[in-house]
Write a protein that binds this DNA or RNA. Structure first.
Lengths: 344, 344
DNA sequence: TTGTAAGCGTTATCAC
DNA sequence: GTGATAACGCTTACAA
């Protein structure tokens, strides 16, 4: 009867001696079918090893059961934490989560989005290479629920969940000033990344408000937000003439900070005594560093969870209105900035 | 005509003034349709914003375009590197990759597998909680291509791609002995994890072969392979009476090693002078540690790539035979075991 | 080269 | 409570 095919509702119906509609009812509205036939059908399903075909279901029902997250950088644990937050929310809603990685390349991003469109996913969460990209608008125009994660657009054309990066920059530098530092470096780049610009802006703002001279806030640009770039920035820092050399560095993310920490310790500097370091994101490896890293904490999982909730609302609530959620980051002080080194 | 619906081949056909079969041909066998009509159809597609419905395609064609990887522990960057290797291979084959995370829970694993079965994915790659679990056999029995990644089964009932963990344990400890260490700790657990057992076994083998006393190879069990457990093991290590205290530790993975490193440095020990440390996996953060970590390197991306190739072969080659690939890991010596600390 | 039509496995709307 | 039956959007023979 089956000759190797994977069994369908039809086969189950035949085996259970009922019609195919009844089998469908057992799956989708079990309350409407009598206990006896339900059990008979379930037994048949088990015997045949029936597994519902999701493509057929989706085609007919017109509704998909998966969400997707297109992340920006698979090498940064931060995004995996965000993804985990999304996954938890998806799980609660009994949805699958499709995770893609653009690796910061707009072209990969477009390929992924196109595929997701073809799959007719219920909604897309994305940390885009460029939040203003026009192909993102097109998704919304198509009616596909879309939430931008950890980034924002200028307008309010879609939902987004982000963190106040300017504020983050402010509290990072404020903390360093409180610790008595007179010359501070900001390490981060490229400038094309909105986050980097805003964190740097926050740093300058507070520095200015505290009455410091702009000359004492030194910008060391990097080409990416990676450990390797952090090391390289460390070398440049060390190369500065002593009278200009900062006693503290605020890094645009934790990977940079980890790289800087490594380079500094390798070069024989003591952290925080010779150089204090603040990172951003508060990924797990920040707290796990040899000198536990002070960092501006983003609510990573919360970010993901909130984003998932927005996308689900947009998908199911006809009265949905776009929202721009904005979390406030917090400083987590650890040994890397302590006036005297302390434990994590 | 469309009233808000998303356009279908039918709509495209109408707009282009051709039949629906022709539209399909444009997508699937463009060579059989004349240039002129092809262009007309393509223009209509663009104007309508047509996106092919993958569910319908899959249902009719009977073939899916996605692979899936069920990873064991999303908090361990090692698995993300493996995933990236798979993704690259998938990309080459023009397939999408569905990434799931079981977080070491067999129950989540089963939920994911069930969903993937429903999606009729082309093949599944998995780093299972338990490679002997019977539900894995069932997938194979269903004819679903399955490859076990970074783990092996006793029998040869499916493809697998793994690393010689016993050998890894051997070279780690051999290296420590070469550096002159007389008492060594093995840190790792729980024993239910095959990897842990084999790395420990390799350690004992070589220790024995080198004529050392079993009493000088101390096993400090952990409850998980995490940074936190590494720290806790460090505390226990420090608590050992001085005459029994090892001068070197071999950790079952890099997360443990990182935790141990942090705890040790925090406690004022010098690494490697007071305590040498070897990790396993060689994740990026191992090289990025304040004292760059010596580690047993697994070919992370290669593992993923090879696994993807096996699953694709099983999916498309009727003469496919199951293979058990077995990579040999290499020791990457860094400062954490140098007799005199050196740079990364 | 293009058109026609059957059918993939489901769900949902009806009668019964 | 249960059973026919018509879609859903696409691919693929086969006919024209």
């Amino acid at each position: 009867m089956l000759n190797g095919r994977t069994p369908s509702v039809k086969d189950v119906a035949a085996a259970a001696g009922v019609s195919l509609g009844t089998v469908s009812n057992v799956m989708n509205r079990p309350e409407v079918v009598s206990t006896r036939t339900r059990e008979r059908v379930e037994r048949a399903m088990a015997e045949l090893g029936f597994v519902r075909n999701e493509s057929a279901r989706q085609l007919r029902a017109g509704t998909s059961r998966t969400l997707a997250y297109v992340m920006l950088d698979g090498n940064n644990p931060f995004f995996h934490d965000v993804a985990q937050g999304i996954e938890l929310a998806a799980e609660d809603a009994d949805l699958s989560l499709f995770i893609c990685n653009s690796n910061s390349r707009a072209e990969r991003e477009e390929v992924h989005l196109d595929r997701l469109l073809q799959q007719r996913v219920q909604g897309i969460l994305i940390t885009p290479v460029n939040p203003e990209a026009t192909y993102l608008d097109e998704l919304s125009r198509r009616g596909l629920p879309l939430v931008i994660v950890d980034r924002r657009r200028g307008d309010e054309s879609c939902c987004s969940v982000a963190v106040d990066d300017v504020h983050g920059g402010r509290i990072a530098v404020e903390h360093l000033v409180e610790q008595g530092h007179m010359r501070v470096a900001f390490i981060g780049g490229p400038d094309s990344i909105g986050q980097v610009r805003e964190r740097w802006q926050g740093a300058r703002e507070i520095w200015d408000e505290l009455g410091r001279s702009p000359d004492d806030l030194i910008h060391l640009p990097t080409e990416a937000l990676t450990v390797a770039e952090g090391r390289s920035a460390g070398e440049r820092l060390a190369g500065l003439p002593a009278r200009r050399r900062p006693t503290a560095a605020f890094c645009a993310n934790d990977l940079l900070a980890l790289g800087l920490l490594q380079q500094s310790i390798g070069a024989g500097l003591r952290v925080p005594d010779d150089l204090a370091i603040v990172g951003f994101d508060d990924i797990e490896f920040a707290a796990a560093a040899a000198v536990p890293l002070t960092s501006v904490r983003q609510p990573r999982q919360e970010l993901g969870r909130a984003a998932a909730q927005l996308v689900l609302d947009e998908a199911s609530n006809p009265k949905h209105r776009h929202q721009q959620l904005f979390f406030t980051p917090e400083l987590v002080a650890r040994a890397s900035t302590a006036t005297r080194p302390r434990q994590p």
